[in-house]
Design a protein around this nucleic acid. Structure first.
Length: 562
RNA sequence: AACUCCGUGGUGUAACGGUAGCACAACAGAUUUUGGUUCUGUUUGUCAAGGUUCGAAUCCUUGCGGGGUUGCCA
């Protein structure tokens, strides 16, 4: 079983090290993890980190990972979310097989265990109001005070709890609490609430219950019932672990899972909390949960990020207990790395300016052969029509070029990608002085594949589209949703930091003919511009493309530095 | 202030008492029919002070700094 020492094993994070130890010591013979979303919202990149961790460990260790919906709060949860969560996990490339569970499946068992706690004097029914309970809990420096109902007899508690279940009481009238220690320095141990009364319709159990277990009372026992070995969650649950363990110690559970906490994913220039994402949607700052600017899984999918890139990103950022903020550039680097290898190349002109080749025959069309992907010779080639009238990118021409500008300008020559050398002979403007057309000549001896016999060179190659063959399209240019690196920090609302230029719609883009057959969801490269994904808003005669991410742009950088 | 977790280049992450490495970012150069890709090189780091040790990012102490916790949310 020993690896040859020559293999530079990728360093393991502290969680995998713990698993290794547990396997080596015989504490566990296998590994079972779980991903436990609450079905009250859409999954985002933070969840992706947890999904990659839990399902990734299951794959690596030949174990399994359960998908368990933590559905203990009927007032917030909906079936709609259950389905979207399943879709997103599958899209990320993971599968729970037959191990789909719901915490609500355990309601009866959980109830019996609550009775068990009451019988052993470790739980009681409290008649105090929410407000009274809050006040008597004390605070970070002050111990709490015990409830006047704390010492009810076991018989009374049994009777009352049974009547709570039977619906004899109104919402909030009573709760079941654990009987632990009202002066414990960890507030979670100050007689936490186990059950509350909620006369609400549950998405799975309907009206079978009017009392619902709290997260703390549910999670660990669900883990134990499923024989989860390692229950991985984020840092904010660290203070809950003593309570998690308390239940396992005081209940006849079938297994002893271990909770381990790691730091959640933070990304700059975005927000990740469900509440804030929901706010962006409900207040209309974005078009929906799947707006391509959203850090939701459905958003990045629509944006065109490949799942492989998300997985590699999660591998790159690692797992630690240190609360850190990851650079958005790291995510984009993962996206570019995958797309550079896999995306087909096409030409598209986003902001067109017409070029007429005065020495090229009218009504003549040549089919130029172009590589589908220079990084992947197997991808083959495509034909691109070439003719007398073309479009080129407006920013690929400058009448008065600054130093180091390699593209087209009056009198200079560039290569058209997969086409010919052209030289700009004349600039045509309208009355307003706006450039409307360039008159150029082409060199017949420079057809793609051959260079001019006189050995002359050009300093740039630019993209183009044949005017008569062009497909009209809308292109949506996305930028980061927030202008500030940490929208959460500082005074005021995070909404104050929204980037007003996060979406720019170009409605006059001209695409290479071959792009008309691109399918919704497909991500391609527009040469020299970036990666673009076909949006579901596309129609048969008018495709819509979303910019996934731009190519690195050394010129923009040089220009910016002036 | 109580409890608790955590501090390694600009960012993220390794090094498990023995040469502080990798990725991203930045910068410089080479290649290039994408100012992309690829390749090469450069800059930048162990929070602080003591202690243990032949030797400390690592162990100990203290200090400093950051996160989390006062829902009948998860």
């Amino acid at each position: 079983m020993t690896e040859p020492s020559s293999a530079p094993a990728t360093p393991k994070d502290f969680i995998r090290e713990i698993i290794d130890e547990d396997l080596a010591s015989g504490k566990h013979s296998g590994t079972v993890t779980r991903f436990p979303p609450e079905p009250n919202g859409y999954l985002h990149l933070g969840h992706a980190k947890s999904i990659c961790l839990n399902f990734g460990i299951a794959e690596e260790y030949g174990g399994r990972c359960h998908l368990r919906f933590d559905d203990t709060n009927p007032t917030k949860e909906e079936v709609e979310y259950v389905e979207s969560i399943k879709t997103d996990i599958h899209w990320l490339g993971f599968d729970w097989g037959e191990h789909l569970y719901f915490a609500s499946d355990y309601f009866e068992q959980l109830y019996e265990w609550a009775v068990h706690l009451i019988r052993s004097g470790k739980a009681y029914v409290d008649d105090q109001t929410a407000e009274e309970i809050r006040k008597s809990r004390g605070d970070l420096q002050t111990p709490g005070t015990e409830s006047p109902f704390r010492d009810r007899s076991i018989e009374d508690n049994l009777e009352l709890f049974s009547r709570m279940r039977a619906g004899d009481f109104a919402d909030g009238e009573k709760v079941l609490r654990a009987r632990i220690d009202m002066s414990h320095p960890n507030l979670n141990l100050r007689d936490p609430v186990l059950y509350r009364i909620l006369h609400a319709e549950h998405h799975r159990t309907g009206d079978a219950w009017c009392i619902y277990p709290m997260y703390d009372y549910t999670h660990g026992q669900s883990d134990a019932l499923e024989h989860i070995t390692h229950s991985l969650c984020t840092l904010e649950f660290e203070n809950h672990r003593p309570l998690y363990d308390w239940f396992l110690e005081n209940l006849p559970v079938p297994s002893l899972p271990r909770q381990i906490e790691f730091s959640r994913l933070n990304l700059n220039y975005t927000v990740m909390s469900k509440r804030k994402l929901l706010q962006l949607v409900t207040e209309g700052h974005v078009s929906g949960w799947d707006d391509p600017r959203m850090p939701t899984i459905s958003g990045i999918r629509r944006r065109g990020y490949p799942p492989e890139a998300i997985r590699s990103f999660c591998k790159t950022i690692g797992i630690t207990k240190f609360e850190s903020t990851n650079d958005f550039a790291l995510l984009e680097a993962s996206v570019r790395e995958v797309l550079n290898r896999t995306a087909s190349r096409y030409m598209a002109v986003l902001d067109p300016i017409k070029v007429v080749l005065t020495n090229y025959p009218a009504n003549f069309v040549e089919e130029m052969e172009a590589m589908m992907n220079p990084e992947d010779p197997e991808a083959g080639s495509r034909n691109v029509p070439f003719s007398r009238e073309l479009y080129i990118e407006r920013e690929d021409f400058m009448e008065v070029p600054p130093p180091k500008y390699f593209r087209l300008s009056p009198g200079t020559e560039v290569r058209l990608r997969s086409g010919y050398f052209i030289r700009c002979e004349e600039v045509i403007k309208d009355d307003a002085g706006e450039i409307v057309e360039l008159r150029c000549t082409y060199d017949p001896e420079t057809r793609s594949g051959s260079n001019p016999p006189d050995g002359r060179k050009v300093k740039a190659t630019i993209h183009w589209v044949s005017a008569s063959h062009a497909v009209d399209a809308e292109v949506r240019l996305y930028d980061r949703l927030f202008a500030s690196e940490f929208p959460d920090r500082g005074e005021g609302s995070f909404l104050d930091h929204l980037n007003p230029d996060s979406l720019k719609v170009l409605s006059n883009a001209k695409l290479e003919r071959n792009l008309s057959s691109a399918e919704i969801g497909e991500t391609v490269q527009f040469e020299r511009l970036g990666y673009f994904c076909v949006d579901p808003d596309s129609t048969a005669d008018r495709p819509v493309f979303n910019r996934t991410v731009g190519l690195k742009d050394a010129w923009a950088k040089a220009k910016g530095q002036g």
